[in-house]
């Protein structure tokens, strides 16, 4: 059994990232005591639902927002990052923060996204890791895999970017002079209200809370969406990474996927059209197998590089980082992988 395969390495990085993000409080402490979001000045008279404000004050180690679901709802005391970038964008727009507060974070985000794009999804995001682990448990238990039906799949990109636009639209609507400023409080948390991470992450820190508010029509709508998204996430027991296909953070990164510096490259002539890459892709990416056009780095690709790992033709698929090839496809003899052995 080979130990240092790409899959195993990625799994290890995912586990480390997971522990770092979810259980930082166990490992790290800081002395900073912050209540709310100090960078964003919230007017004192805004009423937020109870479930939104965490019980105690919380601290974080790194004063930044990751492009993934580095959720702020994770731990009470110490957590690694302030929140996810989507939430930051959402809040900054709604509260009309001055540029000097969001420009450095935006630049950091662009920097991270341009270099790695959706590799954040494939290697770091804890939600992705939980998704994949649930899928893997299903495999061990012997349940059949389900594939998202074609009829639904064709609407997914539209929905993904549609929802992303919806979040930004709501955020913008508040600051435009059209009289929706009353909803500032509600619209500022549209991202968190609908995100499944809010419910899932605290589970791992020992907190189980299904905090869905139906107190006013806006919260009602958000909660319906939130429950639906939570169910989508839970279905990752049967489907492969279903939440990742509509995740707004992922959608943001998707926009930069085609130009990121960590990319795949395919030498079309070496491809024998065996279809293994397409079958193995956790995101059901069908453009890898294609031999025309250059659509191999689509918005869907989470850079897990399983396609490159399993491609049987030498040098057909390559991983390039800043133009340098760092991993090539090669014919590999079938050995039992650490994670795939099916001994029950």
């Amino acid at each position: 059994m080979k130990l240092f395969t790409l899959s195993n390495t990625r799994r290890a990085v995912q586990i480390i990232a997971f522990f770092l993000l979810v259980y930082t409080s166990i490992f790290l402490t800081t002395g900073i005591d912050i209540e709310g979001l100090p960078f964003v000045s919230v007017p004192k008279d805004v009423v937020r639902p109870e479930w939104y404000a965490p019980e105690k004050g919380y601290t974080e180690v790194f004063d930044t927002y990751l492009p993934i679901k580095s959720c702020r709802f994770i731990a009470d005391e110490n957590r690694a990052f302030r929140a996810c970038f989507m939430h930051f964008a959402n809040e900054s727009i709604v509260w009309n923060s001055p540029p000097e507060e969001w420009i450095p974070h935006l630049l950091l985000f662009l920097f991270a996204a341009l270099i790695f794009a959706r590799a954040w999804c494939g290697w770091i995001c804890p939600l992705g890791f939980i998704s994949e682990s649930a899928f893997w448990i299903r495999k061990k238990l012997g349940f059949k895999e389900r594939k998202i039906p074609e009829k639904i799949k064709q609407y997914i990109p539209a929905f993904k970017y549609g929802f992303l636009s919806f979040v930004f639209l709501l955020s913008l609507l508040v600051i435009l002079p059209i009289g929706l400023s009353a909803f500032q409080g509600e619209f500022s948390i549209v991202n968190c209200a609908t995100c499944p991470a809010r419910t899932i992450f605290p589970l791992f820190a020992g907190k189980f809370s299904l905090d869905f508010s139906f107190s006013n029509p806006v919260y009602f709508l958000f909660s319906i969406i939130g429950i639906a998204f939570l169910l989508v996430f839970i279905s990752s027991f049967f489907f492969s990474r279903p939440w990742c296909r509509i995740c707004p953070s992922g959608a943001l990164l998707s926009l930069l996927n085609p130009v990121s510096f960590l990319r795949k490259e395919k030498e079309k002539e070496k491809c024998t059209s065996c279809g293994i890459c397409e079958r193995i892709c956790p995101m059901d990416n069908t453009t890898i197998q294609e031999k025309k056009g250059d659509s191999i780095n689509t918005g869907n690709c989470i850079r897990c590089f399983r396609c490159v790992e399993h491609c049987p033709e030498e040098d057909c698929l390559k991983v390039k980082f800043f133009g340098k090839t760092i991993y090539k496809s090669k014919y590999k003899e079938k050995t039992e992988s650490l994670l795939d052995s099916t001994k029950k």
């Binding site: 065996c274 279809g275 079958r279 049987p312």
Partner: peptide, 19 residues
């Protein structure tokens, strides 16, 4: 060509073989 199986269930095996 190798038969690359990811999903060792009956449908998974049959799909890999057919492809």
């Amino acid at each position: 060509e190798p038969v690359e199986v990811e999903e060792y269930s009956l449908p998974g095996l049959m799909q890999a073989i057919a492809e």
